[in-house]
Design a protein around this nucleic acid. Sequence first.
DNA 1: GCGACGATGGGCT
DNA 2: GCCCATCGTCGCA
Length: 192
Amino acid sequence: MQLTRSFFARDTLFVARELIGKRLVKIDAQGRIAGIIVETEAYRGEDDLGCHARAGLTNRTKVMYSLAGYSYIYFTYGKHWLFNIVTESIGYPAAVLIRGLLITEGGQIVAERRNYLPQDHWTDGPAKICQALDLSGIHNGYDLCKNGAVIFVEHFEQSPVKLLGVTTSPRIGLNSVPEPWKSMPWRFVAQI
DNA sequence: GCGACGATGGGCT
DNA sequence: GCCCATCGTCGCA
């Protein structure tokens, strides 16, 4: 069942934690690709110096100020796209970065897009997920909660993977971000 | 206008 | 483990 806007319109830390074990789905011309979310990070507010919204409302960050359940997809390091889902209420900039996925459907398509690397390396990083699901800037600001969405998150009746729990750690890659933001335990990882 | 640098990944040692 | 490509965004002049 497709997650509704009320799921995303909550505290970003809750959403980031509860997205672990949910299923992310993308439907496109090449087929349906799905995977279980196993790693996320929370970014919330202009005060959070690890969050892009520290710069305030700009052309890049404006989608983070919009409706929960929209995608926030941005380009970095001159080559990579990263996929986030907007959270909280309109006007409060926050999002959850999807960092890790276990592919459960569409493996054939993903294998091709990931250059036939070993399956462990298909979607074990945020930019790899965008390669695998073919997500880029054209999908920025997409409503994952609308009827007929081709990108959405759903919960299982019966999960194919047994999750033992969720661990936390500091967010990855915030090397020059000041404390306390650098060390906030806002990364969530599934224990399989 | 312009320079610094990044929520990374792939290739090489 | 280390290096660095590659370019949009932001901050500052």
